[in-house]
Amino acid sequence: LPPPAKKPLTKIVSHLLVVEPEKIYAMPDPTMPDGYIKALTTLCDLADRELVVIIGWAKHIPGFSSLSLADQMSLLQSAWMEILVLNIVFRSLACEEELVYAEDYVVDEEHARLSGLLDLHVAILPLVRRYKKLSMEKEEFVTLKAIALSNSDSTHIENVEAVQRLQDSLHEALQDLEGAHNTEDPRRTGKLLMTLPLLRQTAAKAVQHFYSIKVQGKVPMHKLFLEMLEAK
């Protein structure tokens, strides 16, 4: 028997799939000697460029641009690293114990150790394993990423009701998606939402990691990345 036809995706999820950013490339500087400074310079530059993309992406989340500019800023300042980490994690789902920071920057444990990225590597891998176990799909990833942004628990929100409405609409989109596509597991929405504490914990470790690097002052960082780190 043919499998039952899947219901159409909710409007929000279809929209989030369309506005999902293109692949990003790290383009490590070939003139720099390999090692700690080069690896971190590459990652900081990549993060800075990806932040620009994330800010553009956020504006396409239905309802986000209707928030006040101050609330848009507060959500992004709280959640940017969770979004960066979730992007890395989703790109890494097809790999074995490797992190796909970018299409051209895939790091295994050995490379991570040699380039001083082991702490970050070890911090992010449990999240990859968690989503692998759930076999997270792209529709779920794009929705969860928007939920992470709306649910960033910033203490500086002006219009709490408006942010709540945004959370509710994205939560509903995830529930509808699971209702239509994963009828065999009625707890799947909950299982996905229950990954968010580990995402926050991982992002906090990553922020700490890059903040220490900023304090050491040996790695050049672009202005937007610095600005977001300082907002933390």
Binding site: K59, G63, L69, R165, L224, E227, A231
Partner: peptide
């Protein structure tokens, strides 16, 4: 806001808002 001027500027660069 003065401290976060790049984020502010990037958010202000307009694309039409997507309504719920």
């Amino acid at each position: 806001k003065e401290k976060h001027k790049i984020l502010h500027r990037l958010l202000q660069n307009s694309t039409s808002p997507v309504e719920l």
